[in-house]
């Protein structure tokens, strides 16, 4: 277990005349949601441990506008986008890594037309790169050995952007047993949070989407449900609690598992 070191902002970096290699886009959930903050910190520890030259925007970061846009409020979205793009361009940001698939998708696919052109990658892809480059090796690889892990594809990394292999390759180095749900990858089912559903009650129906998705995950008899999205995290965690399985089945983000495997974090 390592402590978090001081995290520098773009403004501080700029004042020191350093231009960071990457900007870590933390996102609203990563900044404010207690559970997602743990993921933010785990990922930050990995970056710090590897001495990666990164910065965050801190108080200058703002919602990308994803929930507003998906709800139909293009005005709120484009206002948010214009503000963010102005800041990102002012700092001459080239490369962004984010732990949120919604931020990833909107920054990568929808900002360019509005003048925000960056190389955007998701932390699952970044972790895969680090693993491939031999930078992340598991000191205590045995922590997850023999554990059954099922990976829940987030819609915004999966179908929306066709990224299916990166998270699975990250899980692979944990030396655990990856068990796929019946509905996975291209056929994966949504956790129920996307399209701004996170921010309102479900429409009338016979079941909540996250309950059904959790049932599908439980069918694989997992020890861990792995996710790569803060909203999926909330939905799956709630789903597991709803089934009263929170003591035996844990929901973790990829970054948390890698940080734990490296001895930077303690989650098990």
């Amino acid at each position: 277990m390592e402590d978090l070191k001081r995290v520098k902002t773009m403004a501080e970096m700029m004042a020191e005349g350093i231009s960071p290699e990457i900007l870590f886009w933390v996102g609203c959930a990563g900044s404010f949601d207690a559970r997602a903050i743990k993921v933010t910190k785990a990922f930050t520890k990995i970056l710090q441990h590897l001495n990666i030259n990164f910065a965050v925007l801190g108080k200058e970061e703002g919602c990308t506008g994803d929930p507003a846009k998906r709800a139909g409020n293009e005005l709120a979205y484009q206002m948010a986008a214009a503000t963010n793009i102005e800041i990102l361009n002012a700092y001459e940001v080239k490369k962004i890594v984010t732990t949120c698939p919604h931020c990833f998708n909107i920054l990568k696919n929808e900002y360019p037309e509005l003048g925000g052109k960056y190389e955007v990658i998701h932390h699952s892809q970044y972790l895969q790169e680090l693993i491939d480059a031999g930078k992340v090796t598991l000191k205590d690889g045995g922590a997850f050995k023999g554990k059954r892990i099922t990976f829940h594809d987030s819609c915004y990394m999966g179908r929306a952007n066709d990224v299916y292999e990166a998270p699975r390759e990250v899980i692979e180095i944990l030396d655990a047993e990856l068990v796929e749900m019946k509905k996975s990858k291209k056929n994966g089912m949504c956790c129920g949070a996307g399209g701004a559903q996170m921010f309102k009650e479900d429409e009338p129906g016979k079941q909540r989407i996250n309950t059904l998705r959790t049932e599908q995950a439980l069918e694989t008899n997992p020890d861990i449900i792995a996710v790569s999205c803060p909203f999926c995290m909330t939905m799956m965690t709630d789903g597991v609690k709803g089934k009263d399985k929170q003591d035996s089945i844990k929901v973790f983000d990829l970054a948390e598992m890698i940080a734990h495997g490296q001895g930077l974090d303690s989650i098990l």
Binding site: D3, L4, R6, V7, T9, V26, C28, G30, S31, F32, I37, T40, K41, T44, V56, L57, G58, K59, E61, G62, C63, P67, A68, A80, T83, M198, F199
Partner: peptide, 18 residues
């Protein structure tokens, strides 16, 4: 600048925690 009612001034509070 967040979908929830948190102040933008608090966006980096997570980094202050251990």
């Amino acid at each position: 600048a967040a979908p929830w009612q948190f102040s933008q001034q608090d966006r980096l509070n997570w980094a202050e925690e251990k």
